[in-house]
């Protein structure tokens, strides 16, 4: 039996693993991460209190995108183009078949 996930949605788990793996691979220290994440939470929480669920992982994602953009690992343009390519791949793939990026 698989225990219930500790994340609300699978992408949150992927995001968590991606961030920890990048830090462990030496691309940024965890202190650097916490500092950047804290700054995003502060900025996003200025308008209204964050709920610690969906808000929290939205802030997490924004932080990682920012860090990777500034480091040149995943520049914003490249991230947007890759996201658009995934969107096209999903829309072009018949239901039930594995979705893959062309090339």
């Amino acid at each position: 039996m698989t225990p219930p996930s500790r994340f609300d949605e699978p992408w949150q788990a992927q995001l968590f693993a991606l961030t920890v793996a990048m830090s462990e691979a030496g691309h940024f220290t965890w202190s650097r991460w916490a500092e950047a994440f804290g700054a995003t939470l502060k900025a996003m929480g200025a308008d209204r209190p964050l709920d610690g669920g969906a808000d929290y992982y939205a802030a997490w994602l924004t932080t990682l995108e920012g860090l990777l953009d500034r480091a040149g690992h995943a520049p914003v343009d490249e991230a947007e183009a890759t996201k658009a390519a995934w969107e096209r791949a999903y829309l072009a793939t018949p239901h039930g078949q594995p979705v893959r990026l062309p090339g």
Partner: peptide
Amino acid sequence: LRVKALETIL
């Protein structure tokens, strides 16, 4: 999709 894009690139 944004997470997928980052993962793909990295």
